[in-house]
C-alpha cells in the first residue's frame, strides 16, 4: 500500500514554489534545444549568415565600405535577430498545446502562470545567447564598440527587456495558430516587413516620405536607434540617446500591456 496513502494536500502554490516550477520548465526548454540541434542552428547559423551576407554582398554598395556598413548594420541585426528568436516562444507553446503537453502540465499541481513564465524565462536565455553570438561574430569581422562597456551592457539589457515584452506577441501567435508551422509563417509574413521597413539595414533618408513616416514610428527603428546610440555613439547616432531608450521602453510597456492580457485571454479560451 505505498501508492494509496493519502498525501498531504496544500491549498495553494506559493510564489517561491511557482518561481521554482517556472525555472524547472525553463530548464526543460533548454534541454529541448540540446536535443534538437536544428533549432539551435536556426538561431545560431542564420544570424551569422545574415551578418556575412549583408556585410559583404550589400555593404560596399550601400555604405561604400564593408567595414562602415558592418558598424552601421550590426546593432540593427541584433534587434532583428531578437524579434525572430521570440518566435520560439510561440512555436514551443503551440507544440505543447497541439501535442497535449500543456494539458499534462495543467493537470499537475503547479502555479497556473508557471508554464508561460517558464517559456519566457527560457527565451531570455536564448536571447542572451544570440545577442552574444551576433556581437561576437561582428567583432571577429571588425565591428568595434564606439562607446563603453557600460553602453554595451545597457543595450543588452534594453534588448532583453524589449524581448520580454515582444515574446507576448509570440505567445498570442502560438495560442492562436493551428500548428507550429503557422507560427513560422507569421514570422516571415509579419516580422520581415516590420524589420525591413525600418532603419536596420539602410538609413531612412533614402526612402520616400510616406515610408519614412512609418519607419520613424516603427518600434524596431526606435530600438535600433537606441542600440546604435548605446553601442556606437557619434557619428552613427547623434543627439540624446535617452530619447530612443525611453521611447523603446514605452513601446515595450505598450506591447506588454496589450498583448499579455490578450494572450492570457486567448489561452483560457483555447484550453
Amino acid at each position: 500500500m505505498t501508492t494509496a496513502t493519502i498525501p498531504e494536500v496544500s491549498p495553494r502554490v506559493g510564489p517561491v514554489e511557482g518561481l521554482r516550477q517556472s525555472l524547472t520548465l525553463a530548464w526543460r526548454t533548454v534541454v529541448q534545444v540540446r536535443h534538437n540541434p536544428w533549432e539551435m542552428s536556426d538561431f545560431s547559423i542564420q544570424p551569422i549568415m545574415f551578418v556575412l551576407l549583408f556585410t559583404y554582398v550589400f555593404g560596399g554598395a550601400i555604405a561604400g565600405s564593408t567595414s562602415d556598413y558592418l558598424t552601421f548594420m550590426l546593432p540593427g541585426m541584433v534587434v532583428m535577430n531578437m524579434l525572430f528568436v521570440t518566435l520560439y516562444v510561440g512555436q514551443g507553446l503551440n507544440t505543447d498545446l497541439t501535442k497535449g503537453v500543456f494539458d499534462r502540465l495543467r493537470s499537475l499541481p503547479v502555479a497556473r502562470w508557471a508554464p508561460l513564465a517558464g517559456r519566457i524565462a527560457a527565451d531570455q536565455v536564448k536571447q542572451a545567447w544570440s545577442i552574444v553570438l551576433v556581437l561576437g561574430v561582428g567583432m571577429l569581422l571588425g565591428f568595434r564598440l564606439g562607446t563603453s562597456v557600460a553602453g554595451l551592457l545597457g543595450a543588452v539589457v534594453l534588448l532583453l527587456v524589449f524581448a520580454l515584452a515582444f515574446s507576448w506577441v509570440a505567445v498570442l501567435v502560438g495560442v492562436v495558430a493551428k500548428d507550429p508551422e503557422r507560427v513560422q509563417i507569421f514570422g516571415f509574413t509579419a516580422l520581415f516587413p516590420l524589420t525591413f521597413v525600418s532603419n536596420v539595414f539602410v538609413p531612412a533618408e533614402t526612402m520616400p516620405g510616406w515610408l519614412q513616416a512609418f519607419v520613424d514610428v516603427n518600434p524596431i527603428s526606435i530600438l535600433t536607434d537606441a542600440c546604435r546610440g548605446l553601442m556606437l555613439g557619434d557619428p552613427w547616432y547623434t543627439g540624446a540617446v535617452a530619447v530612443p531608450v525611453v521611447q523603446s521602453l514605452v513601446w515595450a510597456g505598450v506591447i506588454l500591456a496589450v498583448f499579455a492580457p490578450l494572450s492570457v485571454w486567448a489561452l483560457k479560451r483555447r484550453v
Partner: peptide
C-alpha cells in the same frame, strides 16, 4: 473551487495529457 487540491490527488493519462516527445523518458 479546490482545483489545486484535486490536482495533488489525481494522476491523469490520456492522449491529450501527453509527455514531451523531444525529451528522453527519464527527462
Amino acid at each position: 473551487r479546490q482545483a489545486h487540491q484535486v490536482r495533488q490527488l489525481v494522476g491523469l493519462t490520456g492522449q491529450y495529457a501527453s509527455v514531451d516527445e523531444a525529451l528522453t523518458g527519464v527527462e
